[in-house]
């Protein structure tokens, strides 16, 4: 009996179950063979679902009409065909439209960031009557669906005569009522709240006024929050189409609206061209052109999207 036990011990020592278990399952999510392969499998397969539309778009936008109808051509076009982009650029009047698109995205995004930082700072550093209530109302403005108040706003802007001009998009941003402004106010609120008081007290003792303190101390400290807010504001304005299509009308030249009415736009740009019929290639080339500015911004500023969210207090308290 003892011998058997001895052998078993020897075998156990040889196999070292613990070690195998450690290799397979690990102690953390990132080590351990089984878990790690599951993690990578999940990451890659879900990542593919995300990338699929991008790849599809990229591949089709370079295909000749013959390639699109040819079942033998999958993913890789027979040649790089730029005519789709050419047609899409003409139909969208791309460069002109890009400029007017920027006036209703870049401008309000910048204004909104500045205004929201002021508001967030006010809430974070000062005590005044009704502060809690007002802060709660900031949250409420985020929750109320835009549909409830767009109709009267539409009527109001009509009376002011700013409908179908860029002002109808820019004015709300001046007053902290732009696209998701409440979120930016809260980001700045959270950020300014966690700056130690000592910074401000020291400046106050030195005799700096309240506004000087804001510009000289608070703003430089909050640069990452500014960048993050601006980026998200820019992206959200770029992707917002409900209000802009309503307020600006079909005639205003914005890229997103042009994409929404691409079929009729194409017919207007290419009348009587039966042979040059609109196909997926052209439409996807147009779609690609519209997300291209955002992709560029994203690739250049990528780290601010992620670090910014980590540093600014979105996830805080």
């Amino acid at each position: 009996m003892d011998k058997v036990k001895l052998y078993l011990d020897k075998i156990k020592k040889f196999i070292r179950v613990d070690k195998i278990k450690k290799i397979l399952f690990g102690r953390n999510l990132s080590d351990g063979l089984i878990l790690r392969s599951i993690v990578y499998l999940l990451l890659i397969s879900i990542g593919f679902v995300y990338l699929y539309p991008m790849l599809y778009m990229l591949s089709y936008s370079f295909m000749k009409p013959q390639d699109i109808t040819n079942p033998m051509v999958i993913w890789v076009p027979t040649e790089l065909y730029f005519e789709n982009f050419n047609k899409a650029i003409i139909t969208l009047k791309y460069f002109e439209t890009l400029l007017s698109s920027l006036t209703i995205t870049l401008v309000p995004a910048i204004i909104q960031t500045i205004v929201c930082s002021l508001i967030g700072y006010g809430f974070a550093r000062y005590n005044f009557p009704l502060k809690k209530t007002l802060l709660f109302l900031v949250l409420v403005t985020f929750i109320v669906p835009i549909q409830v108040y767009t109709i009267p706003r539409y009527v109001m802007f009509h009376q002011f005569g700013i409908l179908e001009t860029a002002l109808s998009i820019i004015i709300p941003s001046i007053f902290g009522q732009g696209v998701n402004s409440a979120i930016f106010i809260l980001i700045f609120y959270q950020f300014f709240r966690i700056i130690p008081n000592a910074f401000f007290e020291a400046a106050e003792i030195e005799g700096a006024g309240d506004y000087k303190i804001f510009f000289k101390i608070a703003v430089p400290l909050a640069i990452p929050s500014y960048i993050t807010s601006f980026l998200f504001g820019f992206v959200w304005y770029w992707n917002e189409t409900y209000i802009s299509s309503l307020f600006l009308g079909q005639d205003f030249q914005s890229l997103q609206i042009k994409l929404a009415y691409f079929v009729s736009q194409f017919a207007a740009s290419y009348p009587n061209e039966e042979a040059q019929r609109l196909n997926e290639g052209i439409r996807l080339a147009a779609t690609l052109l519209i997300i291209l500015p955002m992709l560029l911004v994203y690739f250049i500023m990528q780290r601010y999207f992620i670090e910014g969210v980590e540093k600014s207090g979105i996830a805080g308290e």
Binding site: L51, V235, W238, N239, I257, I290, Y298, Q302, I306
Partner: peptide, 19 residues
């Protein structure tokens, strides 16, 4: 991360519709 945050930047109504 770059892949998974793509939706943040391109999820507009017309673009998703077109896709």
């Amino acid at each position: 991360r770059m892949i998974y945050f793509l939706p943040v930047i391109i999820s507009s109504g017309p673009v998703i519709n077109e896709l």
